[in-house]
Design a protein around this nucleic acid. Structure first.
Lengths: 200, 200
DNA sequence: CAATAATTTGACCAACTGGTCAAAGGCAGG
DNA sequence: CCTGCCTTTGACCAGTTGGTCAAATTATTG
């Protein structure tokens, strides 16, 4: 089974992942049912369980795939680059993810709000380590007088919070903005906010 | 039933609301069970349904109570006051709510992430109207040169996003900060951010 | 204290849940 | 066309779910 995936396997596995993402990101793990996922994937429930051994397996696979991409933009921050440009770039990459992968953002948000039972170790290990590293870089920038003094961890939180807000609270944002596209204004606002906060 | 509430009714209704808040805020509506709520309230399930006619009734009552307090801080912004102080005050009130009522914040977040099926009308009506009003006030401040030019709606989003982040993503924040209290740093950061963005 | 009303509970139910399984259907290579 | 494997499915199951109800228990009041 692990050796070679037939075309039909690849197609159905992809359909299940996509369906699972749609369902789990909206209702959370416990609020979702296999029937929902099966219907969204266009498969019968037993057929779905032919490809994934359990509901948990689908969800876990989704989370694993998500985490791969989730930490990536943070890694791309370059200590040698221009501080403001690097941080603006990071914020923009995160905002792009909210725009183009809102379901992934909501899946992550659901998991965290519910206490992150399955990824607590990633948060305390890989994520924390990465944030520690970047925080050191930012502190160095501050010490070198290249940006204003700022708590690096709260700076990172603010970039996460703001960018993910447009995906996670999409309904609310659209209720308030009406027909206006959220992301144009968001990009400009984010840049102004970071420049005001960081530029010496 | 609506005329007079006996002591015992008040006590049990309060216990149910508190239990419902704890359970629904963690698992969302569909992910929560009446048994969980009943156990958290220290009541049997039929006894719980003696006070609320259905699971939905508990959840709806919680949401209604929440929305009362949710919009309040926004109403307190005073068009006659000092712009920066007013907005800082608003941000601080929201941050206090995240600190002292994190479950309410998560309940709201869960509802919004899941598409806000029960409060879409409030978002498009009351909330939107309120935001429109405050946006006008902020635009006037900008026009009068009292704060820098800024999109008022995205400014409001950023205050929501940042303050609620500390409640909704509590697990992640604590995983990264360790023993450090999040709210001290958050308050200072938020103030620096808003001053950098707004002060002329 | 008796009677009445308010509260609590055990037993129960139909619908739904995640998951199993044997059998059937489809498809490639010979 | 046949054989063997991959894929799909209908029927089914045990546990859980939201909710009901009559009966028992506990206040409250005259």
């Amino acid at each position: 089974m692990a050796k070679t995936d037939t075309r039909i396997q690849k197609k159905n596995q992809a359909a299940i992942m996509d369906a699972g993402l749609a369902v789990f990101s909206q209702f959370g793990f416990r609020g979702s049912t296999l029937d929902q996922v099966a219907e969204a994937a266009g498969l019968s429930k037993p057929n779905l369980l032919y490809y994934f051994r359990s509901k948990d397996a689908i969800y876990t696979a989704l989370l694993a795939k998500l985490l791969e991409n989730w930490l990536e933009p943070l890694r791309e921050i370059n200590a040698e680059g221009d501080p403001v440009q690097e941080l603006l770039g990071y914020a923009n990459r995160k905002l792009d993810m909210s725009q183009h992968y809102p379901r992934e953002s909501r899946l992550f948000a659901n998991e965290i709000i519910q206490g992150a039972p399955r990824i607590a170790d990633v948060l305390q290990g890989e994520l924390r380590g990465l944030v520690d590293e970047i925080s050191q870089v930012i502190n160095d920038w501050v010490a070198a007088g290249r940006i204003k003094s700022v708590d690096p961890r709260h700076l990172i939180f603010s970039i996460w919070a703001l960018t993910q807000h447009y995906a996670d609270f999409d309904v609310q944002v659209r209720a308030i903005l009406g027909d206006v596209d959220p992301f144009d204004g968001a990009q400009a606002y984010l840049e102004a906010m970071l420049r005001g906060l960081l530029e010496v």
